[in-house]
Write a protein that binds this DNA or RNA. Structure first.
Lengths: 197, 197
DNA sequence: GTCTATATCTTGATAGAC
DNA sequence: GTCTATCAAGATATAGAC
């Protein structure tokens, strides 16, 4: 969950490059040479920082999880309604899709689960659990304050909401219709909103 | 949308093998040699039936779309409620996941969109449109007969429902919790059900 | 820490015999 | 239609010089 030793400058660059390459083309779709070209070193040099491709991917997901968790903390720290928090959560996904032109790293990697080294997949699964935990707390708060329908199963809704966003992101990117993502987010929120006009 | 000439026996075998391999490991994760080993020929022989990997993938998606459309026709032909139709739709996904231990071919391929030949990606996008069209008609019928909440945006709900199932399938498979998929389907239906007890 | 050089393997694809 | 043989390219990874 937490970082070990602080990474060197180059190691961070390599990690960032690998992360963004995987968000674009997946684990099977990027190579050490791709990373090397982006960072400006030779592919053999990467092995000094990350011995194997699995090590690199695992570290990239770990750093992704940390960065994502910080974004969630930022949202939690704001004094806004649960509904607004879900909206801001969706904005993270939308920003990744439209500004960085990337998919969710763990959405991509999970779809390649059968090709991943075991410890990489476990990191990916850890990401999903991070999201489930944060989302279910927000939904719970929304039910308590009366803005969300009280009949919904909180834990399951967290997973359903996450699934919808991950799926919509993949479909939106493939079909090149980014609006699919934010419209899906809006509808998912609308479906549990008990304060509809 | 329709098949051209009928495929030879071996071509069908190759197609089926490629389809199931891609449902397991994706476009970047399967090779001609994998297919050859399954079918019992040499990898060079595949090129006789499908000149390039892109041709093979495109044909596999086309055949997948056809088979899926037949399943949808079967559901439509039954005299069951819109709610039951959505449930049966979810059963298709669940069956793929738990019996064949596979993901949705187009969910996997869409997540690799940036690695796909252009015409393969267009076939994948066509699949999503097939699903959107069928699902929206079912939802429309459910609104008309009063079982689904009338406030929902029909076209968008079709996409949201599909997104949720695709996302849940990927997450369920990676985390090895297949129940995530059917619970997500159930909740998605429950969220628009207007006849709740 | 990064390099060159290299080993080893796998890939998609082609040529030509049968 | 399928084979053998082969290719050129790309992959991960290692050894050892600098």
């Amino acid at each position: 969950m937490t970082s070990q030793e602080p990474l060197s400058q180059k190691a961070s660059e390599i990690l960032g490059s690998a992360q963004s390459l995987m968000q674009d083309k997946g684990y099977n779709g990027f190579s050490f040479r791709d990373v090397a070209a982006q960072v400006g070193i030779k592919s053999a040099s990467i092995h000094y920082h990350f011995p194997t491709k699995g090590d690199l991917a695992k570290a990239a997901v770990g750093s992704y999880r940390e960065a994502f968790s910080k974004l969630l903390e930022d949202i939690s720290a704001q004094n806004i309604t649960p509904r607004s928090q879900l909206q801001k959560y969706g904005d993270i996904f939308m920003d990744t899709l439209t500004v960085k032109h990337n998919a969710c790293l763990c959405g991509i990697l999970a779809s390649e689960a059968e090709s991943l080294p075991e410890d990489v997949r476990h990191q990916v699964d850890g990401f999903f659990d991070d999201q489930r935990a944060w989302l279910s707390a927000v939904v719970e708060a929304g039910i308590k304050d009366g803005t969300f329908r009280s009949v919904i199963a909180t834990q399951q809704y967290a997973i359903t909401f996450l699934s919808a966003l991950e799926g919509a992101m993949i479909i939106a990117r493939s079909t090149q219709k980014p609006e699919i993502l934010n419209q899906t987010t809006d509808q998912m929120i609308g479906l549990i909103d008990d304060t509809a006009d």
